[in-house]
Design a protein around this nucleic acid. Structure first.
Lengths: 273, 273
DNA sequence: CAGAATCGAGAATAGCATTCTCGCTAGTAG
DNA sequence: CTACTAGCGAGAATGCTATTCTCGATTCTG
């Protein structure tokens, strides 16, 4: 976007003009946000209603009593809308888990509770809203992994914190807390999500307890004394950052308002023939 | 659909008629299978070429030099086609892993190798063919979990075997081998699939080693003592032989000289109620 | 060879996302 | 009050695909 000589010769936008534009913009932006919110709400209702993210843009438009035109004026497309809802739901979920876990004292116990909560909220329940994002989330995972990742950041931060604490108290071993946290989260979320082999295999899906037991093993200093001549597995804990470094990220933000996003960046361009 | 209906009556379909039908059927069935195979091959080529499962039914039809009509006469829809390819790929993958792992002696070592192979094949590489099923697989996971599960069965069986063996040799602890195997597989596959938090978080995705270390901890006898009312420690000493080397899959002769174009395309499942 | 199956080509449908065209309405400077 | 502009609602128009349906043409079967 920097190689456009033809335009770089334009007038340098005087400050007063910028301000003028800014002012006339503010009001509009406010209204825009309201509209956006209406779309968001409508979509949320639809999801809760139908149980899937398969609603049509039309439906959202109708329910929000606005117009298609308006929709596309505020969102880059259905995808953006879903992404917004997704992020919003995730950050709320993160906040909720954080809060419920706050009570616990023991790091490991807190982590366990967090895993249980995460597992539970990742579960495809029927009536409620948030869970249905899981299916969209999975789809998103293959189409826009980066955005999913960033949406997961708050939660990942939190889990990382807990893992670090557990490491500090010697209850766990994790040379790379963040990565370990990521693994734990993934395990919990995907296991909850996937009705995995419930066919000829076991009839009942894997439970939270099992997930936790598995994760627990994964972080407890495991007896890595297997005679395998492979590369030393777990022992890469080079100077475990146990010393100080208390990250203690007290981000109590959770300002869910994911209103108008329009990152308009790597969004898939509308295919045109 | 307008053929002889009264079949529910006592008319027991004379043997001769059955035979006649059978005969006239056999040939047809044979031809049908050939046609089906052509569709399958064409689809596979397209996937290898374009790198996604986003091909059009039209394309498959054209490439296979057959017709739309024929396509829908043999497949219930694009979905069925993909499912067929998916199952095929998975079972081949299972066979391949089985084979490569067969060499190993130590149960745990074999398991490790299997995890590595599984992780690798679940990885969304660029140009190649099969791995791209992962994205379809994920989608399938939410739309037809059962079929995915059944497709995973062979692999799950194999992993279960290994876990059981490891348990027998005392290298692992798993009250429920099958479930544990499932967890391991899921962890490996999803972790490989998900480029998870690679944003502000760690730049490099989680590696196989990390996955293995995590899983290893999860199965090594750890301070695990949760609810999971384990039935008597599985002592079923199954003679896990695993022999049978079934390779012979050296087709691959497609013309993959095409430069991947476009590729970007937001997945929008045409699902309908 | 005649009739029955199939098949190839491709037109016709249909569901959806995304665009685009028309007025309409409110705010605003003149 | 009036011309002008921006944003909006309605809804038609597009574009892309999957899926169906129609019409001869071909192949198989007896």
């Amino acid at each position: 976007m920097s190689a456009v000589p033809a335009e770089s010769v334009e007038t340098p936008e005087p400050a007063w003009r910028q301000r003028a534009v800014e002012r006339s913009t503010r009001a509009a932006k406010l209204r825009a946000e309201q509209r956006v919110q209406r779309f968001l709400d409508a979509a949320q209702e639809l999801i809760a209603d139908k149980g899937t993210t398969d609603f049509t843009v039309q439906e959202v438009v109708e329910r929000s009593r606005q117009s298609l035109r308006s929709f596309y004026q505020h969102f880059d497309g259905k995808h953006e809308l879903l992404l917004a809802l997704f992020e919003d739901a995730l950050s709320k979920s993160a906040a909720a888990i954080r809060e419920q876990v706050a009570a616990g004292q023991d790091p490991l116990e807190r982590l366990k509770l967090a895993v249980e909560l995460l597992y539970d909220s990742s579960r495809p329940r029927e009536g409620r809203q948030s869970p249905l994002f899981t299916d969209f989330a999975v789809q998103l995972l293959v189409s826009h992994p980066e955005q999913v990742a960033s949406a997961h950041l708050p939660l990942l931060d939190f889990f990382t914190e807990m893992v670090e604490e557990a490491v500090e108290t010697g209850q766990a071993v994790a040379p790379k807390p963040r990565r370990t946290a990521s693994l734990i989260m993934q395990t919990a979320m995907f296991t909850a999500q996937a009705p995995s082999a419930r066919v000829g295999a076991h009839p009942s899906p894997i439970t939270v307890e099992e997930v936790w037991a598995f994760c627990l093993g994964g972080i407890s200093g495991g007896p890595v004394s297997d005679g395998t001549p492979a590369t030393a597995p777990t022992v890469k804990k080079t100077a475990a950052k146990t010393g100080a470094k208390k990250k203690a990220s007290a981000k109590k933000s959770a300002s869910a308002t994911t209103a108008a996003r329009k990152t308009g960046a790597a969004a898939s361009p509308p295919r045109r023939g």
